[in-house]
Design a protein around this nucleic acid. Structure first.
Length: 677
DNA sequence: GATCCTCGAGTTCT
DNA sequence: CTCGAGGATC
């Protein structure tokens, strides 16, 4: 039987409580500090429940450092200020190699006679700096950094962080103040947000803010269920311990006392050693379980640190070398509306240019008006801009506290900004559209661009700039006009010589030989993308029957319902569209007869669905897709449980994770090539 | 009618 | 890549 009930005598109970404290603390240490669990979850729960049961029977056996007290019980009224006994320093920043070389040179100049300096290097975590006071090995106080001189008492919350020991191991000194960074893992952050979303609560912006917010909670019960973690990185006030000669040695001792130190700490030599470490961490950065915003270098010898001293509140012996940030603040200068090929009006924020994630960003899409209202972005607002893992900049949120007096709300225009036609917004739909159709130059330009694009007609060399000129100069109205352009005409245009013009004409000639599926896609029929175009092509086999088909007949096609069928039917009913198609055919646009579906659906990979993520070595993703289709397989963009295989190349995206969650079979490039035969 | 699966459309910068 | 919405399925 389990020992849920308390021992009969108090003496027995006291002895058992001692044992349980020890066992639970040991299990916590192995799990949270060493990251090497030796106790099963069930076993751990049994120990904790037994302790709770005894404490319920004998309340005076509850001590402040009991593992049960970690859960956090009573909220505090407000956070109490704490004066740091030794100030918590801020660090100078280096933003490039030159800054770092200068730092190393200054250090060497001040330390006369030292040729090469030894540095302790460690990742700089994106979290919250906290000071921890241990007296006689027992945690008595934890305080935030605050302004460096005064912080706030957050002991009640810090007790709930399992990686922070309540009691140090071995023989700790009389007094030990250590500094560490409290942070949240990315996975923990995501899981937390997913839960919040499920419960309909508001989500958090990033792990850093969430960690900072959690630690400054008044109610420790709110902190207890947050996945917080900690790394210790320096020593403050000490009594009863003679510091070793080097910082790296001090960190070793912290480890021995059961304080979690980053496993990535290294000792490096000179500026070149620092830069190599920076490089290595930069490569590791995307694979780490937590966010880091740079690395920190500290002169390793304490004697040298003392010799170097401080400038105001920053030490001369340490520097933070920052990575390009994933997130930055910037100001929304204006919001303009772009018109897409279907007439969709997209609000785009024009931003004060800002360097984020390695590039300068000056535009960010706001998708649609629903999004604008949800985020309540106004012109003049300061916003948080993200470019996480992803490439596309995203406005995460508005910093409302920094909204200026005259911040202007964003209004959907009633007329198209390009052609002045009415703007139409169907209720319950997110997008608003310009009703100008092909009369609108913006829509005409965008449809021509789509027509020429790689996955459609694939006219190499016909880009935005050229199309703008051709449309503005009224030389091209429909796609068919493109093929009528002469070398002489093209050579007239800006940035075009005889040679490029000849090349472009040649490219257009080559593009005339195409496939029915590409051609249908190029026409830009609403709701007909690549997949639907391919389905239509293989169902009808030729263009003629499709043009004449009734709505009902079109609905026969797999994955085509009433809405899409109506769009397709309507498109071919338009006299203008028929004329354009006719003209294109006359210009020599042609394709081989298409195999009907029945014939295409045999092959080695028939009935299998593939999703590709990451970069493949031996071929592009498009090629891989073509090979799969050629063997009768299907390629899809998103992973579901109907997916047969997920093919993973180098640097895969979130699809790999999804595949693992759903238990979908994952193939590496080698396995994929084998499957292809 | 609800839910899941896909597809389409739009977007950034070098 | 992400969001929104059409289509299929139960």
């Amino acid at each position: 039987m389990t020992k849920r009930t308390a021992p009969a005598t108090k003496t027995a109970a006291r002895a058992r409580v001692g044992e349980l404290h020890e066992q639970i603390t040991q299990a916590n240490y192995q799990y949270y500090v060493l990251d090497d669990p030796q106790t099963s979850d069930a076993q751990y729960d049994r120990l904790l429940n037994e302790l709770k049961a005894i404490e319920a029977t004998y309340p005076d056996l509850v001590t402040p450092d009991s593992p049960t007290q970690r859960v956090g019980v009573t909220p505090v009224g407000q956070l109490t200020p704490v004066v740091h006994s030794t100030p918590m320093l801020s660090l100078d920043n280096a933003f490039n190699d030159e800054d770092l070389n200068n730092f190393d040179r200054r250090v060497r100049e001040r330390l006369e006679g030292v040729e090469s300096v030894e540095y302790a290097a460690e990742p700089k975590l994106d979290g919250l700096a906290v000071s921890f006071r241990y007296e006689g090995g027992r945690l008595v106080q934890a305080a935030t950094r605050g302004d460096g001189l005064r912080g706030e008492d957050v002991t009640h919350n810090v007790r709930t962080i399992k990686a922070v020991p309540m009691q140090l191991r071995g023989k700790p000194p009389e007094l030990l103040e250590v500094r560490g960074e409290v942070f949240m893992t990315i996975a923990g952050f995501k899981a937390m947000n997913a839960q919040a979303l499920e419960r309909g609560e508001k989500t958090f912006v990033n792990p850093r803010n969430t960690a900072a917010g959690s630690i400054r909670q008044l109610d420790p019960r709110q902190t207890a269920n947050k996945p917080l973690d900690v790394f210790f990185y320096s020593v403050g006030e000490v009594k009863g311990w003679k510091l070793p000669a080097k910082h790296s040695e001090a960190l070793e001792q912290l480890r021995a006392w059961g304080l979690k130190v980053s496993p990535l700490v290294e000792v490096v030599q000179g500026a070149s050693g620092c830069l190599a470490y920076y490089q290595r961490m930069g490569e590791k950065r995307p694979k780490l379980a937590y966010e880091i915003d740079g690395v920190v270098f500290k002169v390793n010898s304490y004697a040298q640190q003392r010799e170097l001293g401080f400038v105001s509140r920053a030490p001369r012996w340490a520097i933070a070398h920052k990575f390009p940030a994933h997130e930055e603040n910037t100001v929304v200068k204006d919001v303009e509306f772009q018109v897409g090929r279907t007439g969709a009006l997209t609000p785009v924020a024009r931003l004060e240019p800002v360097f984020v994630g390695g590039v300068t960003v000056s535009n960010a899409t706001l998708h649609n008006m629903d999004e604008v209202e949800r985020k309540d972005v106004r012109i003049g607002d300061t916003v948080v801009l993200r470019r996480a893992g992803d490439v596309i900049p995203e406005i995460v949120k508005v910093i409302v506290e920094r909204r200026p007096e005259g911040a202007k709300k964003i209004k959907l225009p009633t007329k198209c900004p390009v052609c002045k036609s009415d703007v139409e917004k169907v209720a319950d739909e997110a997008v608003a559209r310009c009703t100008g159709g092909l009369f609108c130059p913006a829509q005409r330009k965008e449809s021509l661009r789509h027509f020429a694009s790689r996955r459609a007609m694939d006219i190499e060399g016909l880009g935005t700039k050229l199309i703008d000129q051709l449309v503005d100069g009224e030389q091209v109205h429909t796609p068919a006009d493109l093929f009528k352009l002469t070398v002489a005409q093209l050579a007239e245009l800006d940035r075009m010589g005889e040679k490029s013009a000849a090349k472009l004409v040649e490219a257009m000639q080559a593009s005339k030989k195409t496939t029915l599926s590409r051609f249908l896609y190029a026409l830009g029929i609403r709701d007909v993308g690549e997949a639907t175009a391919a389905a239509l092509a293989s169902h009808f086999g030729q263009l003629g029957p499709l043009i004449e088909a009734s709505e009902e007949a079109i609905q026969e096609v797999a994955d085509v319902g009433p809405v899409v069928a109506a769009h397709v039917h309507h498109f071919f009913q338009q006299k203008h569209n028929r004329e354009v198609i006719e003209a294109l055919r006359e210009q020599g646009v042609d394709w081989p007869a298409q195999k009907k579906r029945a014939e295409a659906s045999s092959g080695a990979l028939a009935g299998k669905t593939f999703v590709i993520t990451g970069t493949l070595d031996s071929m592009s993703r498009d090629e891989a897709g073509d090979r799969i289709t050629a063997l009768g397989g299907k390629v899809s963009g998103s992973v579901s449980k109907k997916t047969s295989y997920v093919i993973v190349g180098a640097e895969p995206g979130s699809k790999l994770q999804k595949a693992q969650e759903l238990g979908v079979e994952v193939l590496d490039e080698k396995g994929f090539l084998q499957l292809l035969g």
